[in-house]
Amino acid sequence: MLEANNISVNLGGKEILSDISMAAAEGQLTAIIGPNGSGKTTLIRALTGEIPFNGDAHLNGFDLSTTTSLKLASMRGVLPQSASLSFPFTVFEVVRLGLTLGVQANIDVPTRISEALTKVGLAGFGKRYYQELSGGEQQRVQLARVLAQVWEPTFQKKPRCLFLDEPISSLDIKHQIQIMNIARDYAKSGGGVVAILHDLNLTAHYADHVVLINKGRVHAYGAPKMVLTAENLELVYGCPMSVGQVPAGMNFFVLPEISHAAPI
């Protein structure tokens, strides 16, 4: 679905990303993790066609640097880290912005908006003013807008991709799990998800594939068990880590070794 080879990004004369190669497949949740300032958001911005880059990247075979915004909008949705609005939009109207270009032919707009709001747990919020919501609620409204844009995980028999830049950072644990479930279900239904995550345990639980970025380069890449090792994480985050197995044996967890943490 998404393939990127030797991606480099220079911003203001500084190399932010160098030589990044990665792929994200349909049916999978691909997590991008790494310390603050490692280039995760820049990578998403390059992969969504937002900023120019060297190297080549394709989404469903379409070259990201030459494909029109309109065509890309039919194949992928992007949830930004934060979105502020200066005008008094209602929640209904914000979600409707996801349907701006009408690439979603033959849909009943109010029904789609209601479905999207219900999915993110905000049924009944349509009338509220966006600016009056809490940060976490605003984040979920934005996700509803993105979902409205690319509601079906496949389009013309090709998978669609959800790009999520820290989708759960401002959410409580219940909504973190709810949003991660939505992302996983989207992937399980044939779409693809690329998400920047900070929570290593939710990454361990939900990700099918992990890209660990450090200083603008891919440090490790593969299945969670291969990437989320104490050695990798200690090297990248600069903080001693323990990786353990939960008793049921289903999943593993990652804990920082706080008592031995190096003084900052």
Partner: peptide, 18 residues
Amino acid sequence: SEAAVPQLPTEIEGGDRT
């Protein structure tokens, strides 16, 4: 064990000023 993802909207949302 996990928070359920609600699927079916009960009614059409308000907030449309068209």
